[in-house]
Design a binder for these strands. Structure first.
Lengths: 203, 203
DNA sequence: ATACAGTTTAACCAAATGGTCAACAAAGAT
DNA sequence: ATCTTTGTTGACCATTTGGTTAAACTGTAT
């Protein structure tokens, strides 16, 4: 029986670490849980990653990169504002549907260790929002949309895309939605959210 | 020197527990930290609250009640839809500005312990959203607003009010805002968000 | 076969952590 | 003054937890 590429010890560890860290966060995760989840010994875990910190850093860097890369890619593309908004909402909600734990994980750790986050994970991301702001200012000058501070529009857009994933458990309790209804709800939002935004800003 | 009412051991403990739990969450909080913060012995902490669980439950119940009560109060009031939206956004953002840790704390713990949350903290909150949905359907029938599923409108509104508090650290890094600029930003949102919503749905 | 490198394990360790206990102090009640 | 209840403390305990070590196993080149 040949070891497939996905089945190396290294990959089993990363998969297990991802699951445990995403679900429980740095403080709540236990090295023993990760080892169990990977089906290996705890000592072997330390053989591959010397400490919990090191392993966490790998998982967190991977996660925050996933969380921001998509945003950056779409926002820096050269398409008209409305198309950009549609593309952003659609693709970002799609990506988060694939990784529903991502927002809470990244935002929670960024809140709990802001200094560390800034030091290690905030390189070359400075001007992400600047580009979007310029697009908006341009369309305001062209009288295509009503005057509105770019920061608010951007915050509104990201809020409506990301928040449902964070509020999911409470939302499902209060709305009584079932799992598949929630999936459908998210699917709808790919269209509903950009429509909602454009309806609001279009002149 | 008479002990003022706010300075009882009980209150010092609650204040300390609030601070530590809100900042670090259940998993990250240490009983020793809470005792230190309260300026008392760890044994005394256990004298008042037998276990970390018990103490956490008090703080969490208090927090989740704060988080939902305001919503309920406004949404169940008998005012017109647009006024209700304005009132909700303004008052909810104001309340969260006073308690900026609240959203992440409540949503994070609800995510990490969904079953426990449902069991212990979800009593008599079922029909909170139903009321708002009826208001919206009514206005759609009256042709006052464009057709839109109430669930999406509600989710959008809550998202735009709550999300900025969760994203604060990342937002401040990426936008370069300073603390007082952020406070001003939130202040603006009390008007901007309801305006944004009403612009979008008004016929 | 054997030597050798990388991999895996059981057993172990020290620090951290939630929790307890017996003694002691404070404050009323008698 | 003395008794009793309540509040407070330092020392202590058991378990959990991140991390280490030495031995054993595996595959491979000689």
């Amino acid at each position: 029986m040949v070891k497939s590429l996905d089945d190396t010890t290294e990959n089993k560890i990363l998969g297990a670490a991802r699951k445990v860290f995403w679900e429980k966060g740095m403080a709540g995760a236990r090295m023993q849980d990760i080892a169990d989840q990977a089906g290996i010994n705890k000592a072997l875990l330390h053989y591959y990653y010397r400490s919990k910190e090191k392993l966490f850093e790998v998982i967190f860097r991977e996660a925050s990169s996933l969380f921001f890369m998509k945003i950056a890619g779409i926002i820096e593309s050269d398409i008209p504002l409305f198309a950009k908004i549609e593309s952003f909402c659609g693709e970002y909600i799609a990506m988060l549907s694939q990784n529903p734990y991502l927002p809470l994980f990244v935002l929670n750790e960024a809140n709990k260790q802001p200094y560390r986050f800034k030091q290690r994970f905030w390189k070359n991301r400075e001007n992400l929002f600047e580009r979007f702001a310029r697009d908006i200012m341009m369309e305001i000058e062209n009288k295509k949309i009503r005057p509105l501070k770019p920061a608010h529009l951007f915050m509104n857009m990201v809020s409506m895309c990301v928040f449902p994933f964070i509020a999911k458990p409470i939302w499902m309790m209060s709305s009584g939605m079932k799992e598949d209804e929630f999936i459908h709800f998210l699917e709808e939002r790919k269209k509903i959210v950009p429509e909602f935004i454009i309806c609001s800003i279009k002149k």
